[in-house]
Design a protein around this nucleic acid. Structure first.
Lengths: 210, 210
DNA sequence: CACCATTTAAAACAAACGTTTAATTGTCGC
DNA sequence: GCGACAATTAAACGTTTGTTTTAAATGGTG
């Protein structure tokens, strides 16, 4: 078994298990036995559990961030100014695209993102901000440009409202979908939920509160 | 030290520590030493850690739910039909009021609510739904009445969007506030944040997506 | 073939965890 | 004051955790 094999097998197993149970609730022994590798392999390749957690996030956030940057460049090169709804659609579409490749489940990454914000892993938040903060600030800047006249403080609070609605909803998507399916008998896929989320989030950003 | 003393000292300590670090990351030893009681007191009075977690939630959710029910009764007795914005305002104001009594920090309860949804404590979610589900459904029903013409599925999804925006934002209120204070030099209190959240959440519920 | 990184196996490590036990203390009704 | 029961205490229980260490085996590269 080659190195890349062992490393990615560990990452695959950790990704799934972390998303299902959280970081503290997932032991290295569960990860390594799921991955079919030796227990010591984690500390050999990653150094520690903390660094393994960061590596899991790096593996999906780096392609996502790159894809978002490229999509923003492409849209800006067209010369058409980007509206609020278009920017949010862009964000979601890149997420569905870059995270849904290779049979990966986009919701799993949403669960992980949710964990990064709600579990108490200070090192992880610091890692994400330092690594991907620039792209986040660029996106926030474009969104602010599309909302002229809105005072910056209100804008940023609403940005967090939107972040909360997105992460919370999508990371619990399966659970919510199960409840609604029971009540209404209908199914709704992740793209359908995003179609509902885009206008709702846009309305929240654009509303005139006075 | 009387029984009520020990019990409420444990609940006080657990409430703060759970909100700060989460359930798994808070040990019974930390709780009992913070509370100044013996380690075995938790299992003696509550039975297990799971039941302690439930007791923490029961202590603040029961008065909150009762206060919300009473406020809804009061408003309905007035005969004036309740609008979307009024209902959301009502919810937040009751939260600020009933949870902010006795020097308690409303944000702490928001953090706990966030944990209840994002951490993996199946027993806790079941406990909350079975105990407080009726009031939740009553509030949702009133809100749906205030939004005639909106198809039920879209309504419920937006309800979750609102729940996410509220819980996510308020449970991270201190962290977000610190970031914005650094960027803008201004402060914003929890009531001020709620004043921003009410119109944003209302707009999200009311928007016509067609 | 020799080298070196990789992987495995097995074991041990100290630390932390939730829980239980048995003995002691405190308190209240009689 | 005494018996009964609730409450508190110190100590130990058995697991599980992340991590490290030893050794041997494996595999590809120069």
């Amino acid at each position: 078994m080659s190195q890349t094999d062992t490393v990615s097998r560990i990452l695959d197993a950790a990704e799934v298990l972390f998303a299902e149970r959280g970081f503290t609730e997932t032991s290295l022994r569960t990860i390594t036995s799921t991955a079919g590798v030796n227990l010591a392999a984690v500390n050999y390749h990653f150094g520690s559990k903390k660094e393994l957690i960061q590596a899991v996030f790096e593996r999906f956030l780096t392609p996502f961030t790159r894809a978002l940057e490229e999509e923003l460049n492409r849209r800006i090169a067209e010369g058409v100014p980007l509206g609020v709804q278009e920017l949010i659609e862009c964000l979601y579409r890149v997420g569905l695209g870059s995270l849904g490749l290779e049979g990966k489940d986009p919701q799993r990454f949403m669960r992980l993102l949710g964990l990064a914000y709600t579990q108490f892993q200070g090192h992880l938040r610091r890692f994400i901000v330092s690594r991907y903060g620039d792209t986040y600030r660029r996106f926030a800047g474009l969104l602010a440009e599309a909302l002229p006249g809105l005072d910056p403080e209100t804008f940023y609070w609403r940005l967090y409202f939107m972040l909360g609605a997105t992460i919370f909803t999508l990371s619990s998507h399966d659970a919510i979908e199960a409840i609604l399916r029971e009540d209404f008998g209908t199914r709704s896929s992740l793209p359908e939920t995003l179609e509902r989320l885009v206008p709702a989030a846009s309305a929240m950003l654009k509303v005139d509160s006075h």
